[in-house]
Design a protein around this nucleic acid. Sequence first.
DNA 1: GGGCGAGCTATACCTAGGTTTGTCCCGTAG
DNA 2: CTACGGGACAAACCTAGGTATAGCTCGCCC
Lengths: 223, 223
Amino acid sequence: MTDNAKPTQTQASADNPIVMIVDDDPSMRRALTNLFQSVGLRVEAFGSAAEIMEAKPPVVPSCLVLDIRLPGSSGLDLQADLAKANIHTPIIFITGHGDIPMTVRAMKSGAVDFLTKPVRDQDMLDAVQAAIERDRKRRDAEKTVSGVRSRFESLTERQRDVLSLVASGLMNKQVAAELGLAEITVKIYRGQIMRKMGAKSLADLVRMTEALGIRRTKGNLQT
Amino acid sequence: MTDNAKPTQTQASADNPIVMIVDDDPSMRRALTNLFQSVGLRVEAFGSAAEIMEAKPPVVPSCLVLDIRLPGSSGLDLQADLAKANIHTPIIFITGHGDIPMTVRAMKSGAVDFLTKPVRDQDMLDAVQAAIERDRKRRDAEKTVSGVRSRFESLTERQRDVLSLVASGLMNKQVAAELGLAEITVKIYRGQIMRKMGAKSLADLVRMTEALGIRRTKGNLQT
DNA sequence: GGGCGAGCTATACCTAGGTTTGTCCCGTAG
DNA sequence: CTACGGGACAAACCTAGGTATAGCTCGCCC
């Protein structure tokens, strides 16, 4: 049972959650790996920040367990790098001799928890559980929105114009006036929008625009 | 210029933000009061958790600056008490000898910041600024929703039934079938709903129900 | 140059949404 | 008892939403 830089494979099964460990201390990695495996979690262990940045982002609910002191960059730097790379895997920090400003910074940046060594097993498991639950929720929300977004991308320019005005509550004739179109044209676009977006009702469509954060861009009057 | 238990009055003007200080150390209260007043903030200083719980919740954007060690209950207890009392004024903690678990607990419970003594003036002012901004946003959102909510309360039972179904995207005839009504009845309720809710369009109405968190309560079929 | 898709419009036709007026039942507050 | 409000419905009428069919221009790609 080696546990150096290469990911430790565990429960290669279905799509159950993964815990990723980043710690330069092999004995710590081993201890954490054993702990998580004992409750049936998949584990991948890394020895440095660089290693995990090279790995591909996980596609299942997961979380990171990070020592705040890491060779090269600190855990906080890694947190910032991941955020910049738009990777939002929840992070649990562990520290031997962290201070309060560090803790505050980590928590403000969205860390799930910040545990001090020696870490009680149960505390760690609780934190991981909470982190994975958070990631699961985030992924669900993400998945829903991304489906809607890709359908939105498939709309033509004009259809988007009409969509934003319709979703803001204007009648077809008002949309037509606003865009310098005939009412019939708006109706036809509207039908196309409903089909492309897969909306079964106006209410559906409104909710989709809410999820996409589409706001009425006032003032696009045509001569 | 005394600054004991009674609120220190400052800039009794309009509705600019209030900073509330809770610290049992008079010299600390005085120093903080001076600091905040120097940048034009209104200040109210208290000597204990009990005192501030008796005071009425502020009606303008505000924040709390709390020493984690307080006579009687700790700052964390006060934070919990305020949450239980449904008071969501943002909190900034200051501590002389806090530890990391304490910090984590405070931040998890929504504290804006957690500063260690000696506190740099600029850090404190930055934290207060952020806290007040957060409170302002929360209040704005709250105000909007509470208006909608009170209008919703004014609806009759039946109107609410119809509202939830209409907002979920059903056609009038489907709503009628679901509730065992005639279509015309649904139309009439629908009009009443639009008027009472002050919605100018169905899109408006849908957004209101979203804000209220109204979800389709499936399965209310009548014989 | 012909086919294609987007954009735009018109006519015709149908369905869905919405108001007005009026009627009836029921329970309850005065 | 009467007045009132909520709930339910009908007929009549009007507006808004939506589809089908058809026709036009423009730019683009092969």
